[in-house]
Design a protein around this nucleic acid. Sequence first.
DNA 1: ACTATTTTCGTGTACGTGCACGTTTTTATA
DNA 2: TATAAAAACGTGCACGTACACGAAAATAGT
Lengths: 355, 355
Amino acid sequence: MDKQNDKPQLSGVKEIARRANVSIATVDRVIHNRKGVSENTRKKINEIIEEIGFQPNILASRLASKKVNRFVVLIPESQETDYWESPLRGIGRAEDEIKQYGVSIVRYFYDLNDKTTFSKAAEKILAGNFDGVLLAPSFISESLEFTATCRQRGLPYVFINSDIPAQHSLCYIGPHLYQSGYQAAHLISFGLKEGKILIVNISKEIDSYHHLLRKEEGFRAFFSENDKVLNKLVKIDIRNTSEASIDADLDWAFEVHHDIDAVFVTNSRVQSVAHYFEKKNIQDKILVGYDFLSENIEYLKRGIIDFLICQKPEEQGYIGIMSLFQHIVMGTAIEKEKFMPIDIITKENYEFYSN
Amino acid sequence: MDKQNDKPQLSGVKEIARRANVSIATVDRVIHNRKGVSENTRKKINEIIEEIGFQPNILASRLASKKVNRFVVLIPESQETDYWESPLRGIGRAEDEIKQYGVSIVRYFYDLNDKTTFSKAAEKILAGNFDGVLLAPSFISESLEFTATCRQRGLPYVFINSDIPAQHSLCYIGPHLYQSGYQAAHLISFGLKEGKILIVNISKEIDSYHHLLRKEEGFRAFFSENDKVLNKLVKIDIRNTSEASIDADLDWAFEVHHDIDAVFVTNSRVQSVAHYFEKKNIQDKILVGYDFLSENIEYLKRGIIDFLICQKPEEQGYIGIMSLFQHIVMGTAIEKEKFMPIDIITKENYEFYSN
DNA sequence: ACTATTTTCGTGTACGTGCACGTTTTTATA
DNA sequence: TATAAAAACGTGCACGTACACGAAAATAGT
């Protein structure tokens, strides 16, 4: 009888082989551009591939080649804030999705207060046998050293959360810092018709300081570009992150500038200022800061923080891994820069925010 | 020599079969709870499955069973606005990802101004042979009729964009309307210390009107819950959506209420009010509305619209299809309600918004 | 012209699961 | 006890691709 006449079989290596009058193995060689095929038949097969728009069956492919890809991530460990737990969740989510395809992920963490932990982890990574790296390049020079070696070995890497331009990374996934500062300025300006605004940088680590600066730049740019002459900007840097020290600095600022009506904190440490506000029973000042952290959300709920700007940390981790996957496993092209949306979180919408 | 000694092979039906002293086929029968297995061995095999945490290899599974799943979507066609193009993009994106697994998607569209087009499409769907439905239930009673039949036939369906509660849908994917109205109120209140606020409902179709009402409810709730006695709310309904008619209605409203300082449009037709503002050279009023449509974005850029609230229409389509996929193909559990984040779009962040 | 080498190509098996079919064992019936 | 029927189980091929291995053809060297 007709056991298998009705096969549409338009695609597939078998069909290509049939049309080219060669065996499947030869087609296979062309597809993976291995050697051992004459220039004639190679060309012929490539034409047929073009013609029928051959798309290899990923399922069968991964099943047959028991190939295993090893990705490695190198990010800060969560200590002072739990920020990095979010990207880590995203990484885990991506891992769950693609482990079916034989991808495994190894995680390394470094201490944001200790550059050497970064370098040591980087060394271990280079010693291991990996096919792709997801990297948060918090320390500029150390990162440059690492990526130089990667490039030399043909080991692809993507940057996450903060970028080092022109480093031939596969791509960058993270926030547009300048613009997020600009956004914060608009929000404050919208709610504040006049009065001084205090900019607060809270950061122990000198290395992450330049990120804050980019935000501050954007923040200031809004006022200069929009003729908001009524709003004078005041700024303080806080390097000692103990509560007492922060309180003292803020005391000083509010004493010198008696008419500050809004505060912009350039990172997730906005909770410290919120805490200060609560203690001093300050209620009428606008407070804007960064990141969807549980403590920040608490102050948001209580109306002490007005807006949080957040840039999908979980998504960053997820997309980071998926980009490696797309490039290395699926072999498809990926965008060079993936800026996260600038999400505005309020008391009303935080519970629907998908991190 | 040792050809294949070194197999970790902890998982897999083969391993289960080995441990249970049965053949692979028997294990297979248990996994798909088909009959033809004694109660004893079934129990034994199930225990082993539990023990080793067996996860079938989806790749091999879909490869072996040349099973094809057919999904169908039923959504409005884009006419007066291009809103539905976004969910459609999301649906296409999902399709690209899962067609590898043998899923095909058929699309039906209905006219939001003509209930009968919905019913006719629904009939066609029921005549076709589908495994899952993604549905925008714009018309309540017609939708109820359709889903009743689906339920009876065991054909799973998910709601998108607007919900009909308690209809045993697989899940609902879309906005939390009430809360998004509440959010809009907060934004306006933040920028407006006093003065009247105009609520504008623009909608031809009486059926989609109840969506707008839910938003309006939330909007009003904010003011009553937060003692904003300074802000009086005024409301107009506009059923005739011609430009002349809208202009006339707005003329009337601003004439009667001379101190309106902010306008809240409960849907994407905010562009009509923006257009009116531009014509009349009105610049000092706050304007808030809905949806990431190109025209709206234009007014946002020019500073006429202050905020757009947007709820990831593309994502809705994507997640809708993926939920069907998760449930029907992968057999995993899915959440009953997936509320989209309430995204706040401004002049500063629209270009980073991932729809 | 005859071997040696290289290039080019085909055969066959494996990946993990699904399923049709056939075989064995048990249970029911005469 | 013999026989039929039903229940329980096993064998083997298929899915589309990868790859080791070996065969054939082309080229080189004497």
